[in-house]
Simulated assay, not measured.
Amino acid sequence: LCVSALVTMLGIFWFNARQLSFHACIAQTFFIQLFTVMESSVLLAMAFDCFVAICNPLRYITILTDSRIIKVWFAILVRGTVILLPLALLLKRLFFCQSRVLHHSYCFYPDIIQLSCSYNKINSVLGLTALIVTAGVDSIFILLSYILIIKTVLSIASGEERHKAFSACISHISAVAIFYIPLISLCFVHRFGKTAPPYVHTLMANVYLLIPPVMNPIIYSMKTKQTIQAIQKVLFPKGSKA
């Protein structure tokens, strides 16, 4: 997802390349949307993984077999392509007779639509519908998964077992938060922040694509002993008091 926009970002910052052909722009916005849907779907699959591991651990191996994991990956790819390809093709019917300057350093679907001087209601409605039936539905199922997980964990008598169960999912919860919060914020900016300064759109667009890949390695490595020891050495060098 980050690499989809990184090409034009680096082109702007390194070579001051501020122009992009219309077809290249359509291709970029398609892949950005596709990888957004795929990442959302992967987070849902990881939530289901946590649900099975905690709520039905004895059947974990029989439920999440290699063949089913491959089928899930294939379904994620097909779902994103089928839903988003028509949106990319519909962009070709738009006309641009005034400003062609994007708010972001990459081609983003709502940003392209706002620049069009032709009738774009269909594009706007279908774009919002695609977002709801993909990331919106995924987020609801992730929430339901964690409601069932919390219900199961709270029924565990031992406090140590509760702590172990919650710590197993804390990394995934953090990953969900750093993905969905910037995405929802960017959508709100585009829908309701038309009077906001241009730099707000640019800032949120960059946060949406750049923060998750920066934070994910940190989130998933915080539980390793080597990382914890390295942080302790930085914060509390030898001879200092903790």
Rank of each mutant, 00 (worst) to 15 (best):
A168D: 03
Q229P: 00
L209T: 02
S118N: 05
A177R: 11
Y199T: 04
Q229V: 01
S124M: 04
Y199S: 05
Y220P: 09
H103F: 11
Y146M: 08
E39G: 15
L128S: 02
R162Y: 07
S99I: 10
G80C: 04
V7N: 12
E161I: 03
G193R: 00
L44S: 00
E39D: 13
V42Y: 11
K194G: 15
T152V: 03
K233Q: 13
F15I: 07
V200R: 04
M222L: 15
A75L: 14
S41F: 13
Y208Q: 11
Q229L: 11
L210D: 01
H104P: 00
F192G: 02
R191Y: 07
A177P: 08
K194Q: 14
N16K: 15
F51H: 13
F188K: 03
S158L: 04
C2D: 06
L203V: 05
V234H: 05
Y60E: 13
G239E: 06
L20A: 09
C2Y: 12
P197C: 05
M46I: 10
N216M: 10
V207G: 00
Y208M: 13
V125Q: 07
C97G: 09
I211T: 09
L85A: 12
P182N: 02
L90Q: 10
F22W: 14
I181C: 07
C50V: 11
I149E: 02
I83A: 00
I228L: 13
K225Y: 01
I231D: 10
V42S: 11
L20W: 07
T62L: 09
S4M: 12
I228G: 05
Y60A: 15
D111Q: 06
K194C: 12
F192T: 04
L91R: 03
G239P: 08
S155P: 01
P182M: 01
H163Y: 10
L87S: 06
W14Q: 14
F15A: 15
E161L: 09
K194P: 03
L209V: 13
L210Q: 05
V200C: 05
L131V: 07
